[in-house]
Simulated scan of single mutants.
Amino acid sequence: MDRRAFIQFAGVAGTALAFPAVGRAAEPAVRAGNARSLYIDAQGALDGFEPDGKGSYRPTARLIEAAKQRRIDVVSMTIAEVGNGPDRFRGAMESIAAYDRIVAEQPGLLVKVETAADLAKAREPGRIGVIYNFQDTTALEADPSKATMFGTLGVKVIQLTYNKRNLAGDGCLESANAGLSDFGREAIAEIEKARILLDLSHSGQRTVAEGIAAATRPPAITHSGCRALVDFPRNMHDAEMRALAQKGGVFGIYLMPFLRAKGQPGGEDLIRHLDHAVNICGEDHVGIGTDNPFLGYEINDETRKQQREFYEDRANKGIAAPGEAADVFNLVEGYNNAARYDRLAADLRGRGWSSARVDKVLGDNFARLFAQVWEA
């Protein structure tokens, strides 16, 4: 399974890179349990599970403590493989069943989020809301009506394309930039009919533009960056960012290497992209989709070796995007643990952001969008 097909939620349904967290600085103060703010990672992964010796998995003490501290309240996690390949439908069904089992076994910790009311439950200290998403439409296997079935099973976000071309349209690494196919338009209609949020991350420029135009409900770009700042294909142009906001959608900034032209990005890179996104989209249409594991990555010789192997595998498959590198981790320095949202909130306020704007970008905007699409 690709790393983006879920960074080890208990190691179920495949193998992926998953590293435990590493602290980088003194952790910021813990939010009060009754704090109004709601932290949402619109594209992440919930690591921090270990085998229980009985054929299932249990949460680690560190994950439990992070949940009690309300470090991140809700994580939207990818539960199906990305890219073209065999048995994508069957694999998605098996993944849903596997994750449902773990959620059912941890009722005091995990909340499967399918409604706005479930988002409210995730505010409780000690609980983490999980949203099921697909980062590709390949699980539909040429039948867009399958979106309704997946929606019934709790998949609440479906991304139209991954980096390369699929039946729906061109991904961001396709040089042809051919845009949406007829199937893609049918898929969008079925996704919206099922009250699933349409995600246009990883798509090519024309696919994004045409997808926004075709959408009748507000769509999202859950994890990307600003192409005006760094000209990589995984980042989005201002025109599409603006069109997304005008449609009522939300643009999520990731914590990924694409935030700078070369090397490991840091906090200044992240805040620069957030500032630009707010300037283009408005503060009501920007959020965060880290594309990181909840607890973060440990950096040591072994994980450096794994990163090289991971990158080489993606490069050999043709899905490694410009900006990825064998020696660059998919993280932003200074925000590589479960306290990243609290630290970012403090950093943004220190740059003059109002508390209201910080709350919007760190969760409220995506909460509004989810409720609008899922329940309208």
Rank of each mutant, 00 (worst) to 15 (best):
M1Q: 09
Q8W: 07
L17Q: 12
F19S: 15
P20K: 12
G23P: 00
R24H: 11
R24S: 11
S37V: 12
I40S: 03
A42V: 07
G48N: 04
F49G: 01
G53T: 06
K54E: 14
G55Y: 08
R58L: 12
P59F: 01
E65F: 00
A67K: 01
K68G: 14
R71I: 11
E81Q: 06
G85N: 08
P86M: 09
A97K: 12
A98D: 09
Y99K: 07
P107I: 09
L109R: 07
A116G: 05
A117N: 09
D118Y: 03
L119C: 05
A120V: 10
E124I: 10
I131L: 10
Q135P: 04
T148K: 09
G151Y: 04
K156Y: 04
V157K: 09
G169T: 07
G171M: 06
C172N: 15
E174H: 04
F183C: 04
D199I: 11
I212D: 02
A215V: 04
I221G: 00
D231Q: 10
F232W: 08
M236Q: 14
M236W: 09
E240I: 03
A243R: 06
M256Y: 15
L270P: 00
H273Y: 01
A277Q: 06
I280V: 15
I288F: 05
D291I: 06
Y297S: 08
D301G: 15
T303A: 08
Q307M: 12
E309D: 14
Y311N: 06
Y311E: 10
K317A: 15
N336E: 06
A346Q: 13
G350N: 10
G352I: 09
